[in-house]
């Protein structure tokens, strides 16, 4: 039962994380470009983006932690998954992608977004560099989410041999 609850929270947090990732990439970034052009960007950068980023990075952390618990206590074990051993390789590939994505959120996206949004001091040149780094890290995560989700759903014991065997 504990594992089911863990997996339930993993999926809830994952939906929140990836949902906000898609919101940033498909809605906010293109919308912000238009909002800057007509002088209405402040509403987004001041009232929406900081709150969305808070939910985004916390959901990322919860998704990874509950995923790690499920990997360790589930059928494969974290060691077999992260060393891509045998039948654990598909979920291990998904776990590696999720781990890279978590790194991107906390190390590349959040610190650089703080500069872009003016939450920390930065020169205009620093802000431009930070915006590009955060953008590419966010786009990398959007790209990785596609195979990550495939391996997340196909890497469970019920499907592994049918899909990869």
């Amino acid at each position: 039962m504990e594992l089911v609850i863990d997996r339930w929270i993993h999926v809830l947090a994952g939906v929140t994380w990836i949902g906000l990732l898609y919101y940033f990439n498909f809605i906010q970034v293109p919308g912000l470009g238009k909002a800057k052009a007509d002088g209405t960007a402040a509403g987004i950068t001041k009232h929406i983006a900081p709150n969305a980023l808070l939910w985004f990075r916390m959901a990322a952390a919860v998704t990874w932690l509950t995923g790690a618990v499920y990997l360790e206590r589930g059928s494969f074990g974290m060691h077999a998954a992260f060393t891509l051993s045998g039948a654990a390789a598909p979920i291990g590939i998904g776990a590696w992608m999720g781990t890279i994505m978590l790194f991107n959120v906390w190390v590349l996206i959040w610190p650089n977004q703080k500069k872009v949004l003016g939450l920390v001091e930065a020169s205009d040149e620093d802000k431009a560099k930070a915006a590009r780094t955060a953008f590419l890290a966010s786009r990398t995560n959007t790209m990785l989410s596609i195979p990550m989700l495939f391996f997340m759903i196909s890497g469970t014991p019920a499907h592994t041999m049918g899909v990869f065997g």
Binding site: P90, I93, P147, F164, G165
Partner: peptide, 30 residues
């Protein structure tokens, strides 16, 4: 040009990665 600069390029790159890693996973599962 960086494919990640467009949404379409990002999605296509993700699908290509999925196919590549599918065959990697198949080889690892044996």
């Amino acid at each position: 040009m960086n494919p990640l600069d467009s949404i379409a390029g990002t999605i296509i790159a993700g699908v290509v990665l999925t196919v590549v890693f599918y065959y990697v996973a198949r080889a690892l599962v044996g």
